[in-house]
Design a protein around this nucleic acid. Structure first.
Length: 208
DNA sequence: ACATTAATTGTGT
DNA sequence: ACACAATTAATGT
């Protein structure tokens, strides 16, 4: 685990902190499509992403879902830091998009690190800001973009995260993540296919 | 190889 | 949004 820590966070955290993370943290390997935490569950630790990608989404009271953003290598889930605000239950759902590795740090440890290690504090702020920027981006597209552009952005982002230009997904699932309906997605995809931006197969979309 | 069934996608109203 | 048709994949015999 020390190896991974040094590689990813070696020039972010000081040596002492790395050692301490290695001591209390656990390295977890997560298969694809694994739900790591659901809405309302107690947060038990803070994740530091080592590899892979994790999808963070929100759900409303009717069980309708909306994709917020992805966590990738070197990221941490800033929303878990809400524990500081006295909230210990997750407001979000985290499902792995790819097989992923991450280091879980128990939540109790983290408080003293803030005063002890300046680098930890900097890391918190930095990742907080990155998350916030991503959130604002998705908020913008929700408010100002049409669904067609949102769909295209979604597919491009997914392609980037997965590293392939073939997306293995159904129209239904896309609709859920964008909080739209299957029929609408199908029709938009069809249009995008006719304009040559994508190719449609069953359970598969090829981006051009 | 064939039939049956389930899941996904396409289309008209 | 709904209903239904068409297509494709999965499974059993």
């Amino acid at each position: 685990m020390i190896l991974e820590l040094k590689k990813l966070f070696g020039n972010v955290f000081e040596e002492d902190l790395i050692q301490e993370i290695a001591k209390v943290g656990t390295l977890k390997e997560i298969p694809e499509d694994f739900m790591m935490i659901d809405i309302g569950e107690k947060i038990k630790g803070v994740p530091l992403m080592v590899s892979g990608a994790i999808k963070i989404s929100r759900e409303n009271e009717n069980g309708e879902e909306l994709l917020l953003y992805y966590l990738e290598e070197g990221d941490s889930c800033t929303l878990t830091f809400a524990w500081e605000m006295g909230e210990t239950k997750s407001k979000i759902r985290a499902v792995s998009e790819l097989p992923s590795k991450l280091i879980m740090v128990p939540i109790q440890r983290i408080q003293d690190w803030e005063s002890k290690y300046p680098s930890w504090r900097r890391f918190l702020f930095r990742s907080y800001q990155i998350r916030m920027d991503e959130l604002i981006d998705t908020l913008d597209s929700l408010a100002f973009d049409g669904l067609e552009k949102r769909l295209m952005d979604y597919m491009v982002e997914k392609k980037r995260v997965n590293g392939k230009n073939e997306l293995l997904i159904t129209h239904q699932n896309i609709a859920l993540e964008l909080h739209s309906s299957r029929v609408v997605i199908s029709r938009l995809l069809k249009k995008l296919e006719q304009t040559g931006k994508i190719q449609l197969k069953r359970n598969k979309i090829i981006i051009i």
